[in-house]
């Protein structure tokens, strides 16, 4: 009995100690976050990387996928899909913002960042492997065989893209909630840095939405990203936004967060891939399996075809230059 009581007491002391350690500023400082992202990005810039500096579809990035072309019957090659653009947009965000963690001295729990980086690293190794396989085939290879290699490469990119967005989202949350880069956004005089980061972390959420929709829900087989988002990536945020424009952006992005929750619920319950490929775009046929799919489809279409298009116009005219 005495042993049991002693063990319980010890356990209480350990738990209490952990809580106190965290509360009193335990955890990792920003430099560790910075170094973790830095190491992974440097790894992905090495000579044998599937990435290189390039501009494609108005997106300029150090992380544009090499050799991501599909062969057509006329022997010409076409850009394969949205994987390369989405990966480039997500990694561009990480590359731009991870240095902001470097000088943040206060310690914090970064377990989520570490695990998301680990998953991205694993996804990257698979992508690299498939990329190196594509180098084994020559340009004169038969179209079916050539495209088979590219399809495997594209599938690895599809999975990798989701790890990029989880990793970028973890960084955005850390910089916003812990480092408090955009803390002043709702103050009387938000700083230029706060406005820029606030707008771009919200646009990252939009790219993340497209990634969920195109790469996961549509399995990169149907749908495409609206080109307005590609053109926006070449522009910069107006950091001298008026008070009214900033308030409008905050109100809109906040409400869009709520709408995003509904849309994610719809995406969990509706497969756009099945809708287009299996049911040939006939929602009545799909409704025979689940009577509510029509409602989920409406929410998905409203979100991507109306709300995000209107947001893009607002960004082009008001938030970006």
């Amino acid at each position: 009995m005495k042993k049991i009581l002693t063990s319980i007491l010890m356990a209480i002391i350990v738990v209490f100690g952990c809580v106190m350690f965290t509360a009193c500023g335990g955890g990792e400082p920003g430099k560790v976050v910075y170094e973790a992202y830095h190491a992974q990005l440097e790894e992905m810039k090495k000579e044998d990387s599937p990435f290189g500096a390039a501009t494609r579809n108005n997106i300029t990035s150090n992380f544009m996928m090499k050799n991501f072309m599909i062969k057509t019957a006329s022997e010409t090659k076409l850009d394969y899909g949205d994987q390369d653009e989405l990966i480039a947009l997500g990694l561009n965000f990480i590359e731009k913002y991870y240095p902001l963690a470097k000088d943040f001295e206060k310690g914090s729990d970064i377990a989520h960042i570490k695990s998301s980086l680990e998953k991205m690293s694993e996804g990257y190794e698979i992508l690299k492997e498939e990329y190196s396989n594509t180098k084994k085939i020559s340009d004169s290879e038969d179209m079916t065989i050539y495209n088979g290699f590219i399809a495997r490469y594209a599938e690895a990119a599809r999975h990798f893209s989701s790890t990029v967005y989880d990793c970028a989202a973890a960084l955005a949350r850390y910089l916003s909630n812990t480092v408090k880069v955009d803390e002043s956004i709702e103050s009387e005089a938000p700083t230029a840095a706060a406005i820029e980061f606030y707008v771009e972390r919200n646009i990252l959420k939009v790219y993340h939405d497209y990634n969920e929709f195109l790469m996961n829900n549509c399995k990169a087989s149907v749908g495409s990203m609206n080109s307005g988002w590609y053109s926006l990536s070449g522009k910069s945020v107006k950091t001298n936004l008026s008070k009214e424009a900033t308030a409008q952006a905050v109100a809109y992005f906040t409400a869009l967060d709520g709408e995003r929750i509904l849309t994610r619920e719809a995406l969990e319950n509706f497969s756009y891939y099945d809708y287009q490929i299996i049911y040939n775009g006939d929602v009545k046929a799909y409704e025979k399996i689940d009577s509510h799919v029509g409602i989920y489809l409406k929410q998905i279409e409203k979100y991507f075809n109306q709300y995000l298009i209107t947001l893009n116009a607002f960004c082009q005219t008001t938030l970006y230059q």
């Binding site: 809109y252 906040t254 409400a255 929750i261 509904l262």
Partner: peptide, 9 residues
Amino acid sequence: SLGNVLVTN
């Protein structure tokens, strides 16, 4: 009960 969404205003 929809939360703070675009269409509740």
